[in-house]
Design a protein around this nucleic acid. Structure first.
Lengths: 295, 295
DNA sequence: TGTTATTACGAAATTCGTAATAATT
DNA sequence: AATTATTACGAATTTCGTAATAACA
């Protein structure tokens, strides 16, 4: 299973064409055909149906494997490259939208930092593959439970002392029947329509798992952007409910009601490649995780 | 980053010798030397110091990457092989020691099943690489929270309706000062000595994370076996405390005191390769996850 | 008929073993 | 001196492009 073969397979499956993949990768049609044949022979299973070219069930499965496999190879190469090169002076921080608390922003140095907001699922990969030096990720978890992140590489997670855990709240339009409640249980809202905002908000799968109801929390409008204010505005306009950290849940026309069950908190963690960080990365990391216990 | 090069690198780093690795892999010294040279050139970093041969810091890092990378490649190959071959008649179930509740055992068919008890950390890998058709894993988690498992491959986890969550208890010797309590908080026991039994019991790291105290829960005796009764006996003999599901925590001379904080339960999940299972695996999977809601 | 995948084949590159060399204990 | 890593070199294999062929739409 040569990574090259895997890469051409993924490209062919995506573009649904041998020749288009050949163009995209700088090969000839012939080479691509040989790659696929070699891979199918090696694995002993047909991977693609031809005309139209589409993955077989086995091929679909290989796509899942290949994605994370190629990602991890990139991550390993990027990680090792850090040992060869001089420490970067310019620092890039990748952050999920909800991970940007005021306390975190205050701890960033004034210059030499690029802040890049990414969909939450892409933050670990960005740190692993060298697209960012540090990552800020968030998620819903039981109190004092670590986030369960996709492990694309041996990354190290650290908690942010100032803003590690915050209460969660359900965002409702002001005229919603439950808007006057002082606390809400997730189970009571399982039948409601929820905003599906995987990039900005919390993934609905997480809510289903927490409530133990695989089929509940049906998605209403889907929002693929990363702007939290828009998300709150969508909830206020009645397009669906949203679960957000209480501090982020305020907005015109929206009411935030604290979540009281199950016991979940909004958690933020700082992600960095393992090993001893060098240069500005070390300083920022220390500033964010270190001694900022208030006066 | 050819997997072959990676494999020889890992072997060389383990055996700390080019020639020993060559023997182990069926290569010549020369070939191994060329593999390492190619890898170092590709990555642009020296990976091994020679005489004595030992990994550099970058090499240490590559070992971490390579381990999971090679594991995932095996997993992908094993997964795809299932599509080519006929469904297996003999079924192998890999289980972590604490995942074997009576309720689970009762649901297994009478014949055609091999049950293999493995250290908890090896169960997902066994299922992923085809060493087992199904896996039973356990762990401590917040109520109705899924287990966070190392993702060696796209595996599917399912809950066991009969025995999904069970209360946890601390196992103490009968003459321990806290043995008469009716409930214990984990934080009160952070300074005690704990049994370190990663294969059979719950990993101490998990407790540290749950209590939010990275340096607490110092290990006492380390037990690398998979026998739960031995673990309880060790706790009874005063070699250290252990956290176990209440049902497994009873034993001669041992006292089990329920854990009341933090809110953690012992959770068991069934692991299987994704896709549509075939043959006996499908039947057993249905028996374990399906309609066994008792009267 | 035009596009697209497969096959045949040859040049170039890669891989691995033999054997000689160099370095370390 | 004995063991062990590196280097030189050549045979065998593999890889990829050109070009011809075949199979769709």
């Amino acid at each position: 299973m040569d990574p090259h073969l895997l890469r051409t397979y993924v490209t062919v499956a995506e573009l649904r064409s041998f020749s288009a993949a050949a163009r995209a990768l700088g090969y000839t049609q012939s080479a691509v055909s040989q790659h696929i044949a070699a891979l199918e022979q090696d694995l002993g299973v047909p991977l693609l149906g031809r005309r139209p070219v589409a993955p077989t069930p086995a091929g679909e499965r290989l796509l899942e494997h290949a994605g994370s496999l190629l990602l991890r190879i990139d991550a390993a190469r990027a990680d090792l490259a850090r040992y060869g090169a001089a420490p970067r002076e310019e620092l890039t921080v990748a952050a999920a939208p909800l991970a940007l608390h005021p306390a975190v922003l205050a701890a960033l140095p004034a210059t030499g930092v690029t802040l890049r907001v990414l969909p939450r699922a892409e933050v670990p990969a960005a740190v692993a593959t060298g697209g960012a030096d540090l990552g800020l990720v968030d998620g819903a978890a039981a109190p004092s439970d670590p986030l369960s992140l996709p492990d694309v590489a041996p990354l190290t997670a650290a908690v942010l002392p100032g803003a590690a855990e915050q209460p969660l709240a359900v965002v409702l339009p002001g005229d919603h029947p439950l808007a006057r409640r002082t606390g809400l249980r997730l189970a009571d809202l399982a039948d409601a329509r929820w905003l599906d905002a995987p990039a900005a908000g919390l993934p609905l799968d997480r809510l289903r798992a927490a409530a133990g109801t695989p089929r509940a929390f049906r998605p209403a409008l889907r929002y693929e952007g990363t702007d939290v204010r828009t998300l709150v505005a969508l909830a206020a306009a009645g397009h669906g409910l949203a679960l957000l950290p209480a501090a982020a849940a305020r907005g015109a026309g929206a009411v935030a009601v604290p979540l009281v069950a199950p016991r979940l908190v909004h958690r933020t963690e700082l992600l960095h490649p393992g090993g001893a960080p060098a240069g500005p990365a070390a300083r920022v990391l220390a500033a964010l995780t270190g001694a900022d216990r208030g006066p």
